[in-house]
Computed example of a mutant assay.
Amino acid sequence: MLRLTCSALILAAFSTPAFAQCATQGTNIKCLYVGPDRIQVPRADLPTIEPEAPAAEEEPRNSPAAIEKRFKRVSARRVPPIERSYEDGDILPAEVMVLMNPGRYGLPSPRDGWVYFTVGREIYRADLDDRIVLDFVNPHIQTRVTR
């Protein structure tokens, strides 16, 4: 342990930090300096930049032509209307799932012994005990276009 500590102290004493003009020197990468210039140039020698004249008759930012230039037109995907598989009074099969979050679809909370069931993309209001279909709910939902 003493030998390791002594050799570390000796190496630390002889090593000095290497100073380079740039951290990437020798790697064929140009250095980038941010801040004041390293070479002080008198202000009188700097070239003067003339302000650019404004373009003649620019169209307003919110005009339809300006908006058309900024955004590309994308057509929405058309979702075919949902056809119902079960009529009122039919009994839903056992593998049909209960809709757990009806508020997500803008539906009121279930009450009086009925709940919402989902069959694929179809939503039905049915009796909880015997699964008799009371209503087809999809036409009453505000549809949203999704990607």
Rank of each mutant, 00 (worst) to 15 (best):
R43M: 01
C22A: 14
D135M: 05
Q21G: 15
I49V: 14
C22M: 09
R73W: 08
L4R: 06
E83L: 10
D90K: 08
N62Y: 15
P64R: 15
A13V: 14
T118A: 09
N138W: 06
F19G: 07
V119D: 10
T27G: 13
E68Y: 05
G106Y: 03
P51D: 01
D37K: 12
R43K: 13
S15C: 12
P81L: 11
G103A: 11
A66K: 12
I141L: 02
I141R: 02
V79H: 03
R3F: 02
D37L: 15
R84Y: 07
P60V: 07
R84C: 04
L32A: 07
N28I: 04
I39F: 04
Y116V: 07
A8F: 11
V41N: 00
C6S: 13
D45C: 10
Q25D: 14
P17T: 03
M97P: 00
G35A: 06
G35L: 01
E87P: 01
K69P: 00
L32N: 10
V133G: 09
I29C: 08
R111A: 14
I39K: 02
A12W: 14
L134D: 12
V96H: 00
D135S: 11
L107R: 06
E83I: 13
T5I: 13
Y116A: 07
I67P: 00
T48L: 04
S109T: 06
A23P: 05
L107E: 04
F136G: 13
R38F: 14
